[in-house]
């Protein structure tokens, strides 16, 4: 595998391998010296067109723990703010010898374009593009579920997962549906009809418009951030009504199965999609998600870059194949 653009890029065995690799890195994270020499001399660029401190530092830490050189290229305060095109930025990074570009972009498909337009030869990792995908988030979510519910091994066969909230605008939901299905889990999307994408019936999952109907039959429930501004566009009448119908509060938490866990990709809107009581409860695994995010991203970087030699050894070994 050369790029990670979509959760659909990962087959069952590859996804399990990423998690197994992450698991090995997890044991290193417990050591005093957390660094491995694996990617010494390699350069990873974090190219972030949107503010996302948590994702950026997660990737940064992952690359540094593998001894890669890390460059943070934030759109704000760079030439991008003055209107440089993605292409010119890509050519610049290529000329500087980036082995991997981790890209966060507001435009769906921008990582795909970066990988396939012939601008760069390094690996591209999608760190969230528009309302499209966020595959490493799905990997860390799957890893977190596997560790908490499946003994930390194998896939997620038979696991029942609900994803609740603004599915329409969520790249996390898209990647999770694809990856969880690949790993054998049964996914139910829960949202008001206005926040379900057109054509969602064709997705490999079920949908429900009623959170209360699914609470008793899930092993994991993932609450998505819902921006209260969505009510300006008539997606729902008020934040209060949204919270009443689709928010996870203490009474709904009590109706979950005993072993069920609560996930949230962050940042949370406490009081909106999730109450503070739930967020702070023992069922919530958000802190584990952050911890697991680093080792899962180490695994992705390792599998994309570690298996290949440094770029200057085989400069044209495998140019991007256009789709």
């Amino acid at each position: 595998m050369r790029h990670l653009l979509s959760a659909a890029d990962l087959g069952h065995d590859e996804a399990v391998m990423v998690m197994d690799t992450a698991s090995q890195f997890g044991s290193i994270a417990d050591r005093t010296v957390k660094k491995l020499p694996t990617l010494r001399g390699r350069t990873v660029v974090n190219l972030f067109y949107e503010d996302s401190t948590r994702t950026r530092i997660s990737f940064e830490l992952a690359a540094k723990r593998l001894s890669a050189d890390v460059i943070n290229f934030a759109a704000k305060g760079s030439s991008v703010a003055k209107g440089e095109s993605l292409k010119d930025t890509a050519l610049t990074l290529e000329a500087m010898g980036a082995d991997a570009v981790v890209i966060r972009h507001g435009s769906s498909g921008a990582p795909h374009r970066l990988a396939h337009a012939g601008w760069i030869s390094g690996s591209v990792i999608n760190a969230g593009d528009g309302t499209h995908e966020h595959p490493t988030q799905a990997l860390l979510d799957a890893y977190t579920m596997r560790k908490a519910l499946c003994g930390g091994k194998g896939d997620l066969a038979g696991l029942r997962v609900a994803i609740v909230g603004d599915i329409l605008h969520s790249r996390v939901a898209r990647s999770n549906v694809l990856l969880l299905r690949t790993l054998g889990a049964d996914v139910t999307l829960v949202a008001p009809p206005t926040l379900l994408p057109h054509g969602v019936q064709a997705w490999p999952c079920r949908t429900s418009m009623h959170l209360d109907d699914v609470l008793g039959e899930v092993d994991a429930i993932m609450m998505l951030r819902v921006q209260s501004e969505r009510m300006q566009d008539s997606y729902f009448p008020t934040a209060h009504e949204y919270s009443q119908r689709y928010g996870l509060d203490a009474s709904r938490l009590a109706r979950l199965a005993d072993r069920a866990i609560v996930l949230h990709p962050g940042p949370m809107n406490r009081g909106m999609e999730i109450s503070a009581v739930v967020a702070d409860s023992g069922r919530a695994v958000m802190v584990d998600q952050v911890t697991n995010g680093v080792i899962v991203r180490m695994a992705v970087l390792y599998l994309l870059l570690g298996a290949r030699g440094p770029r200057d050894v085989r400069p044209d070994a495998d140019m991007p194949v256009s789709a």
Binding site: S108, G109, D129, G130, T131, H132, E133, R171, R174, P197, H198, G199, V200, A202, W203
Partner: peptide
């Protein structure tokens, strides 16, 4: 709007 509203627009995350 970015493309025809369809199953594909939902998958690609492009506004229909």
């Amino acid at each position: 709007a970015q493309m025809n509203e369809s199953v594909l627009s939902g998958q690609l995350g492009l506004t229909g």
